[in-house]
Design a protein around this nucleic acid. Structure first.
Lengths: 207, 207
DNA sequence: CCTTTCGGGTAACAGTTGTTCACTGACTAC
DNA sequence: GTAGTCAGTGAACAACTGTTACCCGAAAGG
């Protein structure tokens, strides 16, 4: 029944959280592959051996982080797709939600951006699989849009992949702007312009 | 005068090449941050201390790889920009040249894609700086195009950033396809479609 | 020819790594 | 109340890390 209560379970969850948070903060300026088990446990304030009670190795901790990070992303994507109004407004909503995600969970977003093409195969594949799901959902939403009437199926997926990738581009741009001490107005304007351009191309696509 | 001949200099260059190649091959499935100095020298067949004759640390070796990789990329970008014909043909040329680059120097391309957002700050910045240069060049070429008549400067850079990022997306897609054992027809079609979509948006941009 | 330069190798260093084993003690289930 | 479970600890291990100081031998410069 996996009780959500119980003193023991609570403590277990607490240290697991400590491990994940420690890793996440170390990953701000490092990559997962260069992270040491002892390093993480030290930052989390537990003994090295406690690590094994929760994860087999660092790759498994990594995929746990992927699940966490993409859970937030998933709600964001769903919100965007569910947004009503013309595609112009929907683009604005998308950029706004990405911005909010980066603002509230910068470490998670940075982790995703960095490890998407990173050096740990298991993590790479976990992210890629989830992004495929996102692209598929986006494609379904696009196909339901009257603008896409008469589009070939492969053209829809072509566009949805572009949009998903653009989401990552935008998130990365926000992170970079923060790192340079800039505010986000320029990055926001760029992202909005690009979405608008893509939207224009979509409207005039020979369907 | 830095003689290009001389027995000593050739040997020096040979081991330097061995170090870079060893690192490059180790980086096929790892990231730079997780790479050890001894590991590289072992793979290169030289003593650990020989490393210091060429690089201060692994970050410096990384930036050397960035220079190498981006030298090839630079010629590719210039070729694309210099290509004549309408934007449709130019897009095809771009995809073809990226494909050729990935085919002839897969390790270098993978290195760029991986370390662009990777865990070594010096390398990240070196890549970002070069990409800024590329974006600027692309912007200049776009501005010279009659299609961009009346465009605001920031809109031009907005588009050029999108194109540069799309180049990376495409390269990454080719690498992923190879990894899965697929051929490149699907990835090529996707990339071409996306460029065509962007081009359509460009034509109908309110200038 | 003799001296200097210098790329590479050897040996050693203190420190860190991942992993194991046995152990504790508080919680849980009956 | 009592037996069992189990998250976390402590000590120990061989292996490996980056870095240093010193040495070697051949090429380079005069």
């Amino acid at each position: 029944m996996s009780p959500s209560t119980g003193v023991r379970e609570t403590q277990r969850r607490r240290t697991r959280r400590a491990l994940l948070d420690a890793a996440l903060s170390l990953l701000e300026e490092r990559s997962l592959g260069s992270l040491g088990l002892r390093e993480v446990t030290r930052a989390a304030g537990v003994a090295p051996t406690a690590f094994y009670r929760h994860f087999r190795d660092m790759g498994e901790l990594g995929t746990a982080l992927v699940e966490e990070a993409l859970a937030s992303l998933h709600t964001t994507v769903r919100d965007v797709l569910a947004a009503t109004g013309d595609s112009e407004r929907r683009g604005e909503a998308a950029v706004r939600l990405v911005a909010e995600l980066v603002r509230t969970r910068p470490a998670h977003v940075r982790f995703l951006v960095r490890e998407r093409h990173g050096g740990v195969a298991a993590v790479r594949e976990a992210i890629a699989d989830q992004l495929d799901v996102f692209a598929e959902e986006t494609g379904a939403a696009l196909a339901a849009d009257p603008v896409s009437a008469g589009w070939a199926g492969q053209d829809v997926t072509m566009l949805s992949r572009l949009l998903v990738d653009h989401m990552f581009m935008t998130a990365s741009a926000f992170l970079a702007a923060t790192l340079r001490g800039e505010d986000w107005t320029a990055a926001t304007r760029t992202a909005l312009g690009q979405l608008r351009l893509i939207h224009l191309g979509r409207v005039h696509w020979p369907g």
